[in-house]
Computed example of a mutant assay.
Amino acid sequence: MDETILFQAGNLKVSAIPYQLNFKFPFKLALSTRSYTDIVILKVQSGKITVYGEAALPPYLGASVQSTIDFYKSLDWNLILDFSLQESREMIDLASTADNAAKASISIALHDLHCQREDITLGDLYEIKSEKTSYSTYTIGISTEKELRRKLEEGKDFKIIKLKLGSDDDKDLIKAYKKHCQKPFCVDINQGYKPRDKAAEMGEFLLKNGVLFIEQPLPAEQFEEMAWVRERVDIPFIADESVKRLSDLRYAAEAFDGVNIKLMKSTGIAETYEMIAQSRKLNLKIVLGAMAESSLGNTAAAHFASLADWVDLDGPMLTSNDPFEGIIYSHGAIVLPSRAGVGAIPVKGMETDSKFIL
């Protein structure tokens, strides 16, 4: 699809570019399977500086490429680019009660622009000084034993594996994993267990098999049922679909042990940082995750990796046509680029390729 010009005046230009991120393997979850993720790349040009944002649009978020572009079109870009980061954030959030990923893409781009102008990194802006090495999990969708072995080979440099569950064959998959791999592992059910007894029974099974934590076993709205399960199984339960924004955290604290915080759910960088701080106050464990974004979204999130208990930012390893470069992995350890701003830039050649216009 072609570039959509959203705003242009003087040396300022804002545009949107739809793109499909293709998975290396079909990404099978409890409730769906997909071979790609739609994203919209937001491009902001201000004088000699060009920055980008990313809206990743997995189906469960309920947004589409067209709805994202429509949201961009509804905004007053002249004011957004003139305001401070906080003023722009407030204005954008008031424009819609939804469109979280679109808001996140603007947050990424505006933070990048601000930091490049100041010649600082995103981590510098938020005064993140930790020298802690953070290791990302490597995610494997629901698989047969043969598929599992092939995916384990693909992720062999990673120290922690994340297994997607939620099928009738979950116990067999865990047995196959234990047969072929001895690395620590966690699981993500993606709301795949009903009723609560099933979640409790599988929780006990996973506990006996050494799982690190269990993510979102029940449907998002079932907080009371989740609290019931949590009382019966002594393992950390992490909320994902149940918690999107800062205001949701008060519900999570009563039913979960931790929360998976993502830029695309939270509306962007500032609220992600606030959610991390509030989660600590509520004694919630933190998984820093993503929606299988490109290296752009994952690099932006990775600046907060040292603040999390676990990190799930392996999207660039799962896709075959990443249009950006930034975050890299050294035996699963996250290594951030040293460039000012977010640190992600278009893959060489993408800036001039007429199909992408980056």
Rank of each mutant, 00 (worst) to 15 (best):
R250Y: 01
Q278G: 00
S67P: 03
E241H: 08
Y251K: 14
D119Q: 15
I238S: 11
C186W: 01
F223A: 12
G210T: 07
L307Q: 11
V342G: 04
E127N: 15
F304C: 09
R339C: 01
M264L: 12
L358F: 15
M275C: 14
D234H: 11
G268V: 06
S105I: 06
N78T: 07
A16T: 03
S74R: 13
Q191N: 07
A9Q: 15
L12K: 13
M350S: 03
Y36F: 15
P59F: 12
G289L: 00
K159T: 09
L6D: 11
P323Q: 02
M317D: 11
L336M: 01
A302M: 00
S320L: 10
S295K: 02
F7L: 12
I39M: 11
L206M: 14
S105R: 12
D234R: 13
D119R: 14
L42D: 09
S134K: 01
S242F: 08
K48S: 15
L307R: 06
L29C: 05
D172V: 01
K162I: 13
D312K: 01
G62D: 14
V243T: 14
M317G: 01
C115T: 10
L282W: 03
N209K: 11
K179W: 03
I108E: 10
S295C: 03
T133M: 12
S330K: 15
A9I: 03
Y126V: 04
D76N: 15
A199R: 02
S96Q: 08
K132H: 11
P26I: 08
D197Q: 09
Q20W: 00
D322I: 03
D314Q: 03
V287S: 04
L79P: 00
Y135M: 08
T121L: 02
D172H: 05
L288Q: 04
R196K: 15
I17Y: 00
S320M: 06
I214L: 08
L246V: 04
P323C: 03
E204P: 01
E241W: 05
I189C: 13
L122Y: 02
V311A: 09
A200H: 04
V65Q: 12
I80A: 10
V342H: 05
K355F: 13
K43W: 06
K179P: 04
G341Q: 02
T37W: 04
L94C: 12
N100D: 10
L284Y: 00
M350D: 03
L152P: 14
A102I: 08
S143G: 05
F71W: 05
A56P: 06
A56H: 06
S167L: 07
E131D: 15
L358I: 10
I106L: 13
V187E: 09
F158K: 10
V65H: 09
F158H: 14
D188F: 01
V187K: 04
I140G: 07
E204N: 14
L207N: 05
R34I: 08
K348A: 11
F83D: 14
A300C: 12
A220W: 11
E351H: 02
P59I: 01
G141M: 06
P346T: 02
A176M: 06
A253N: 04
R280K: 15
S46H: 12
